[in-house]
Design a protein around this nucleic acid. Structure first.
Ligand SMILES: [Mn+2]
Ligand SMILES: [Mn+2]
Ligand SMILES: [Zn+2]
Ligand SMILES: [Zn+2]
Lengths: 149, 149
DNA sequence: GGCATAGTGATAACGATTATCATTATCCCA
DNA sequence: TGGGATAATGATAATCGTTATCACTATGCC
């Protein structure tokens, strides 16, 4: 006798979506990911919405927020919240970690990384028996343009 | 002939308040500063309001926000905005700069500072022709308690 | 005491974000 | 190649932290 065991098919709801499996194809999410990767980085949700409207004139702001959360869950985008409390987004995944130098005059973001600082952060955490999973280093000040000359 | 030149008396409005000169005495501000210095640090405005209500049962939340902004302007308090976007406050002035290790499980804040990291941040900024005025380093992860054992 | 005005509290307004819900688009399967 | 299940969407209400408004009170100075 042959016993055939068939796995019950998982409905969409039960599938894992945090890594994009089980998610349906969506022109809005693709457009928003395209805005992230093709435009200048560090955009707010509102700025992303404005840029997306040029491609999909009827896309709503709620969809932008949902898509950004989705893409962050997939690891295709990263969110960070600077001192003004308004979330900003940049493409992620293939991109390496970096910190930000934020100009308080023109608002520009300079991406920078110092391997030695990264290493010392791990040491600092260990010194306090702290298991680090992520960190945020933001340096506020004036970019070379705004500092004059 | 003697010419007497009298300086016009400056009204309150014209006086400098950012360093607390010209400010009237206020039991609310004193209570809030006391909450900051006597309680556990890193409180939100709402938590500060709750603590202040025990001393001044009629103090309003707007007064708390105003007082916190005032105290930050005086240099007697410092505000910082962690990843959840909700501002938190700690006493400042006599206190030295420090960074934060923030537990994502219990929400506790560990204060830490590494002079070498501070130095390297200046170097990193200089490398990008950036004039730093302040910085924020937050390390997220698990405190020794929450990491188990 | 009396005046000018800083400080206060209640509450409305605000901006960013999230929840709700009816409608639409996508996927899977017969 | 439909048709049904349901994920995705857009309009909009709701939420949350924070700020603005305004009538009223407390303070400091003469
Ligand atoms: Mn970046
Ligand atoms: Mn602290
Ligand atoms: Zn600049
Ligand atoms: Zn903890």
């Amino acid at each position: 006798m042959i016993i055939v065991i068939t796995m019950p098919k998982l409905p969409f709801k039960a599938r894992e979506k945090s890594d994009c499996l089980g998610a349906r194809r969506s022109t809005r999410r693709e457009a928003i990911l395209d805005v992230l990767t093709s435009g200048p980085g560090h955009l707010s949700a509102e700025e992303i919405h404005k840029a997306a409207l040029k491609r999909l004139p009827r896309i709503g702001i709620a969809t932008v927020y949902r898509a950004l959360k989705f893409l962050c869950g997939c690891g295709k985008a990263a969110e960070f919240i600077p001192a003004d409390g308004v979330a900003r987004y940049e493409p992620a995944g293939s991109r390496a970690h970096h910190d930000h130098l934020i100009c308080t005059s023109c608002g520009c973001f300079i991406e920078a990384v110092d391997p030695e600082i990264e290493r010392l952060q791990v040491r600092l955490a260990a010194r306090h028996r702290f298991k680090p999973s992520s960190h945020k280093l933001e340096i506020y000040g004036l970019c070379s343009n705004c500092a004059g000359k």
